[in-house]
Amino acid sequence: MSLDAATVRRIAKLARIRVDEAEIAILQTELNAILGYVDQLNEVDVTGIEPLSGGAQMAMRLRPDICNDGEMPEKILANAPDRAGEFFAVPKVVE
C-alpha cells in the first residue's frame, strides 16, 4: 500500500498536526518508505493467531472504590498555558 498526498493531508488532519504544502511530498516519501518496509509482514501466515495486545500476560487488578486523589485545582492548573480563573481556557468554540 502506498500513500497519496491526499491521504497524508488527511492523516495530518486526524493527528492535528499542521503540515505545510511543501512538507507533504517529503512526508509522503518518508512514510511510504516506512510502509514499504513493513510490507514484509504480509509474508507471515497469521491464520488462527490471537493478537498480543499488551506487554504483560496477566489479569487486571481492581482498585477499591476510595477517594484518595484530586482536590488540588491549583496543581492541576499550574502548568496551563492559559486559564480563566479556575478553568482551563481555549479559543472560543462556536457550536
Binding site: 500500500m1 513493513v38 509482514l41 507471515v44 497469521v46 493467531i49 493478537p51 498480543l52
Partner: peptide, 14 residues
C-alpha cells in the same frame, strides 16, 4: 492490515 497483523506476529515472536 497493519496493527492487528503486527500484534499477531508479535504473538508469534513471544
Amino acid at each position: 492490515a497493519y496493527y492487528l497483523r503486527a500484534q499477531k506476529i508479535r504473538a508469534l515472536m513471544l
